[in-house]
Write a protein that binds this DNA or RNA. Structure first.
Lengths: 133, 133
DNA sequence: CTTGACCTTCCAGCGACTGGAATGCCCATC
DNA sequence: GATGGGCATTCCAGTCGCTGGAAGGTCAAG
């Protein structure tokens, strides 16, 4: 299997696969006679694993650890769980932040006429910059 | 006022001010005899404006537009409102995405023993990679 | 006159790719 | 055998919004 097919099958662009190889996230692929990278199902499986982890917001560093745990038959599930829980905590932090921003913006938008006149509480807030939020 | 004082007063690092000047977000500051950047209250005000806009998640490009609108006495508040609404839409998209990810992770965490044994539904999900979410 | 805090410029790096150029390989058709 | 198109290869540069650090200049205090 060439990189294009592996990429399609794993749901990542070919460039990303080369990048992952470059940074040592995945092992260097074997090569054909014409120097093309060659992939087996096993390697595509790993790529899918990474793709899925990334789509859940794990960093590439996290992926390294997750792959290591995945490959380690003597792993403790506690270690995986801890990683997921840390990730959830970060998500909660981010969600709180974005929610707060959203509230602030929504409040400002609500009070803005949104017509042809220049008076605008949104700009006023940005200019004042010591209100709440 | 030197850059350090301006920075403290606007709530941004000195490096960021130089960066903003570099990319043309704010006008080049005047210079002292010793080539130090010199800031007036007016310029600190602009910096605070940008800092506040950035803290609400507006991009630097957005800040350019917001500053332009702020400076334009003939602006229509509708334009500002539209920007804020677009931003809110983006936030909603992001919030939905993160919330969905959180749900998936929470579901996985819930089913993981988190003990010394290797069996782990989180890794199993990453490896399967065709479940929901 | 020295110390130390501030300032200057410039270059490099973060994370996680992504775009593009220049080149090479492979297969099919004429 | 030539040719064309679609793959592949490498390498460099850019994205976004800073941030760190090196090498040097300025300023006020002691």
């Amino acid at each position: 299997m060439n990189i294009g097919e592996a990429a399609a099958s794993a749901g990542v662009p070919p460039k990303t696969i080369r990048y992952y190889e470059d940074i040592g996230l995945i092992a260097p692929a074997g090569r054909s006679e014409g120097n093309y990278r060659v992939y087996s199902e096993r390697e595509v499986h790993m790529l899918r694993f990474v793709q899925r982890a990334r789509s859940l917001g794990f960093t590439v560093q996290d992926c390294r650890q997750l792959l290591a745990l995945y490959r380690d038959p003597g792993r403790a599930s506690a270690d995986v769980k801890a990683m997921a829980e840390r990730r959830i905590q970060e998500l909660d932090r981010k969600l709180a932040e974005l929610t707060s921003i959203r509230q602030t913006l929504a409040g400002l938008v609500e009070h803005c006429h949104g017509d042809q006149r220049p008076d605008c509480p949104i700009l006023a807030d940005l200019a004042a910059a010591d209100g709440p939020g």
